[in-house]
Design a protein around this nucleic acid. Structure first.
Lengths: 195, 195
DNA sequence: AAACATACTTGAGACAGCCTCAACTTATCC
DNA sequence: GGATAAGTTGAGGCTGTCTCAAGTATGTTT
């Protein structure tokens, strides 16, 4: 267990830490309300800081988003681990998918970044994404072993689906996202198991 | 049958028509290669025209994309009508979904615009989207009447799915888009009909 | 507690993209 | 071939990203 605040690498000067954290909270608010492509200048302004300061802490928009997501990503991986204990393998997987979709829906436009981070080795989020992927892999594996899903379903399919559904939700309504997710999970299910 | 080139409202001067068409072809190339958010200034430059000319023909990026898509959208609706004659209602629907997904994948970022156009009455594409939606509605209706899909699947679900899958393809690979589409179509299928 | 070293902040400025509009040019019609 | 409406131009205002030389605050050292 740590402080709850994503920590920069080493010791920081007190003023720097203040600014760093102020920037994170303002960014979180702004991204939540306006999407992940909100103006960085405006975020700096709201944090009461010059834009150069923002860029010195977060060289790219990606870096800022990454700092915001780090903890959440690991939490998501943990949730996956817990759901391995669910009575039904399929339900555990479905439940995880819903949680993951909500997670992606935190900021409009986040899904694209997560999908990118999987491929991009240089992304700080790469490792976190892999942890999430590994965790979902276990859920998929378990459901497959139990014969509850089609044998050709992969963790990548699940993750892509979750993000695609979240995207659909951004474009229309959360309810639509939910419908797509539900139908596709139904499609994952092994034919012999269907209701 | 018309000329094949999307036509502006009324008679145009010869030079204007030349520029209009040049802009369309350059935009089509640029969007196809770099996505639908490619620089409009650069498109004007490539068309050998001042940016003001581009804006006089196409007041917004949307207008430009709409001009590019008009014909294609109606072609998609026609394809839907033809597929109503497919031997299997489900296969007709599935086949249409694949065609529609390929269509959305024409330009990276196009799916978002199409989803927006459905809701937005002021969009020129609104009508075209409705035609597509109506066409897919018939396919869905037919499959439902034949008992080949779940009764709660709607045309909106189908369209959202198609666009979401295309989005997933943009983020990773076309193969991934295809997998998502396939699984979800499987999820649409009525339980009793499954293989 | 003063001075030092340096970590951090600042904001102007280079650059790119979007979009507008007053001045200019040109096709078309008579 | 002149009048006139239609079309074009490109500088300029705006917003946003990102950089860097100069300035400032902090923690440390004596």
């Amino acid at each position: 267990m740590d402080t709850g605040t994503p920590a920069p690498r080493r010791r920081m000067r007190a003023d720097a830490r203040r600014n760093y954290e102020r920037l994170l909270t303002e960014a979180a608010d702004a991204f939540a309300e306006h999407g992940a492509d909100f103006s960085l200048e405006e975020i700096a302004r709201r944090a009461g800081v010059a834009n150069g300061t923002l860029y010195s802490h977060f060289p790219t928009r990606r870096a800022l988003l990454e700092a915001l997501m780090r903890d959440r990503m690991h939490a998501l991986a943990s949730t996956g681990a817990e759901l391995l204990a669910a009575p039904s393998a399929f339900d555990g997987l479905a439940s995880w998918a819903r949680t993951a979709m909500t997670h992606t829906a935190t900021y409009r436009g986040l899904g694209a970044m997560l999908m990118e981070a999987i491929e991009d080795e240089t992304s700080e989020l790469h490792e976190a994404c892999n942890a999430v992927l590994a965790s979902s892999e276990e859920l998929v594996e378990r459901a497959r072993a139990a014969g509850e899903i089609r044998p050709d379903v992969t963790a990548s399919d699940l993750y892509a689906l979750v993000n695609a559904a979240a995207w659909a939700g951004e474009q229309s309504t959360p309810a639509q996202a939910d419908r797509i997710l539900t139908f596709t999970l139904e499609g994952f299910r092994a034919p012999s198991e269907r209701d």
